[in-house]
């Protein structure tokens, strides 16, 4: 077994150091080493999007990133989306629009949607569907998720001009 490596990161605005084996995915490190289990594993090969996190300024499926690759990086997970006890507008919109049923895909959708709204303040339905097409949901048929994201866009950025 290769010796463990120390990794220094910033996770959800807090400095975090963790020890990991070189073969461990970032997803595994977040869940099993750091204890942030809000990021979910649905497939382990980058196709379901449940483990989506923000790494630096891009979103990644954390099952396809090694833990050691996070050295010096800034990470946002679902646990860092709300401000204290105040839910992010996307989180509120998901609840108000019943955009989750079982909830296992929800953290990945929220992180991906947050990145979408930073890039496109008022995404069209097509833009929203395209952006979220790496996140699988088996419960909702996506209808209420798309509506929630569009409602959150208005909540954050105001009605489109």
């Amino acid at each position: 077994m290769a010796p463990k490596v120390q990794v220094q990161t910033t996770i959800n605005n807090e400095p975090v150091q963790f020890l990991c084996e070189p073969r461990q995915s970032l997803l595994e490190c977040l869940r099993d080493v750091v204890g942030l289990t809000g990021t979910k594993e649905g497939c382990g090969d980058g196709n379901c999007g449940s483990c989506t996190i923000k790494l630096g300024d891009r979103i990644v499926t954390s099952c396809l990133v090694l833990g050691v690759e996070a050295e010096g990086e800034t990470i946002t997970t679902i646990e860092g989306l709300a401000h204290g006890n105040t839910l992010h507008p996307l989180q509120k919109a998901f609840l108000e629009h019943a955009a989750l049923q079982c909830g296992i895909c929800t953290p990945g959708f929220l992180i991906a949607a947050d990145a979408l709204l930073q890039k496109h303040p008022h995404p069209t339905e097509d833009q929203t569907r395209f952006w979220l097409s790496n996140n699988l949901c088996r419960c909702t048929g996506y209808d209420k998720i798309i509506r929630a994201v569009q409602a959150a866009a208005v909540e954050i950025h105001g009605a489109p001009q």
Partner: peptide, 11 residues
Amino acid sequence: KVTGRALYGAD
């Protein structure tokens, strides 16, 4: 469920 606190089996 929107904050990642809900505990599923693998958690």
